[in-house]
Design a protein around this nucleic acid. Sequence first.
RNA 1: GUGCCUGUAGCUCAAUAGGUUAGAGCGCCACACUGUGGAUGUGGAUGUUGUGGGUUCAAGUCCCAUCAGGCACCCCA
Length: 426
Amino acid sequence: MKKQIPTVKGARDFYPEQMSLRNWLYENMKAVSQKYGYQEYDGPFLETLELYAAKSGEELVKEQAFVFNDRGGEQITLRPELTPSLARMVATRAGQLPRPIRWWSFGPMWRYERPQKGRSREFFQWNIDILGTDSIEADAEIAAIGAEFFRAIGLTPAEVKIQINNRKLMSEQIAALGVADIKPALKLIDRIEKLSAEAWAQYGVEQGFTASQTAGLRTLLGDKELWRKSDELIRFFDILDSMGVREYFEYEPSVVRGLDYYTRTVMEARDRDGEFRAILGGGRYDNLVSEVGSDQRISGVGFAMGDMVIGLVAAKYGRTPTFAKSPALVLVTVFGPGSMADSLRAARSLRESGLRTETYPEAVKLDRQLKYADAQGIRLAVIIGPDEAAAGMASVKDLKNRAQFSVSQADLPAKLREILDSPLPS
RNA sequence: GUGCCUGUAGCUCAAUAGGUUAGAGCGCCACACUGUGGAUGUGGAUGUUGUGGGUUCAAGUCCCAUCAGGCACCCCA
């Protein structure tokens, strides 16, 4: 084999099998989004660095974005996330969009990270957001859509969960401990499950917290009933109940999320076994739209789900669909060089009747052609040899139940459709 | 960006303590069947052992570098 040029690190080839998985995710995302009335949109893949500068968090921009200079010397960024683009798009038309704005998207994002399981440098991400309303019903609707998606692809509450917290609640609680600056506290919270109790307390002290403050934080983070102190969360869980998805959710005080722009509700979905990293992450952002150029204050809430982790989780539980190799339902075989025209004509009439049809491109031995049909999962094979041609007939073989019969070429499309429409005896 | 682990045919893996032309299963192709698929049988192709150096009489096996993947950190979808 000749020397091969490898793919760019962290970029993936999508062979038909992977492509069908990606499309399956896309179709389910689309279906659930539309079920709730969300409109599809997309932003540019290329953005200015400026868009992300003060909004997404230092790390994401400085360390993890693909940034390069274009020929004019402008700093261009391959989008590492979609929310800032969304915020700009909404800000641009702030005056003319009817509210609430319900939008969703599925497209590629890039982050310059070390690839690991469930994490690559080029990945696809579902984003769904509702903007222009502060109501907690909007937060709950977004969360419910996440749960509905899991349900749609067959993931049960025993397999996945969506953890909820509220940054406003946490800020109040943290302030009550006498902590002035919230940001480092959120960072400390984010780390609690990764460090031992001692290491975590030590880390807290290093970050400038007193021993009693870290102890207070630990108590806070162990309090699964903390949500009862937040009117927003009480209502939030009530609404989920009415929406019929409550069993997917639980309150988790240690979930605070990394992005700087989240202000209140935050959410994060995980598999119950804790085997994979977060399936989705999101929350409410009250100030982002005005920060990217709107005079009006437009708040929003949404989440993002990457294609990799959900793919791994779905595969683990056997919920990914079986891969259909060929979209064709019919293969028209070619008996010999002289019968090519007959086969092409038959295929044409089948296609014109709406049946997805392949032809075999060479007049090779029949068994090879049937073997091909079988390997491709094509159910019906049409054979037009000299005998059939002379009588204006065609032989049809149903590879699924080995049945074979003959039919006039004129009736072929109707007959094949009839077979495909009738239920299979199992 | 840091540390650790791994890297052999398309896939999953073998190859005594470094020792003759690197093997198997699955898959692939051909034939058995000159008008008929999934099974079976027979035969066949495929690897510069990730890449580049080095040590050695001899390297898939040891050393170094590099690339890629995985794990932890970081961060996050």
